Simulated scan of single mutants.
Amino acid sequence: MTVHSDGPRSRRERPAKPALTRPGIIAAAVEIMRGEGLERVTMRRLAQQLDTGPASLYVYVRNTAELHAAVLDELLGAVDLTPVHAEGDWRERLETVLVSYTTVLFEHPGLARSALVARPSGEHYLTLIEGLLALLDEGGVPGAQAAWGVDVLLQHATATAAEHATRGRAAGAQQEWDALTRALHGAREQTHPHIAALAAELLSGAPQDRLSWGFHMLINGIAQTPRPTPSQEPPRH
Rank of each mutant, 00 (worst) to 15 (best):
L132F: 11
A170F: 05
A171W: 00
H4S: 13
R9L: 14
P193Q: 06
F106P: 00
E189L: 11
P15D: 05
Q208H: 11
A183R: 15
A206K: 08
V97T: 07
A179T: 06
M1R: 09
H68T: 12
L20C: 08
E123W: 02
L135Y: 01
L202K: 06
A171S: 03
D178Y: 02
P207D: 12
L126I: 01
P226Q: 09
A196P: 00
T64I: 03
T96E: 13
A173C: 11
T42R: 04
G214H: 06
D89K: 01
A28H: 06
T158H: 08
A19E: 13
L72F: 11
Q49D: 00
E31R: 11
A28T: 05
M43N: 02
D51G: 07
H4T: 13
L46G: 05
E39L: 12
A173H: 12
S10E: 05
R14N: 08
E13R: 15
S231C: 01
G7W: 02
E87A: 14
T102S: 14
G7L: 06
H85Q: 13
E92M: 07
T82C: 05
N220F: 01
A19M: 11
R12F: 04
V30H: 06
H156V: 04
A47Y: 03
D51R: 04
L57M: 06
P226N: 09
E39M: 10
Q175S: 14
L81H: 03
E163Q: 08
R169D: 08
D73A: 12
A162Q: 01
T103A: 15
V84G: 07
T42A: 08
Q174M: 02
L98M: 13
M1L: 10
I222L: 10
R12W: 04
S212C: 02
E31L: 09
G37K: 04
V71H: 08
T2W: 08
D209W: 07
Q145C: 09
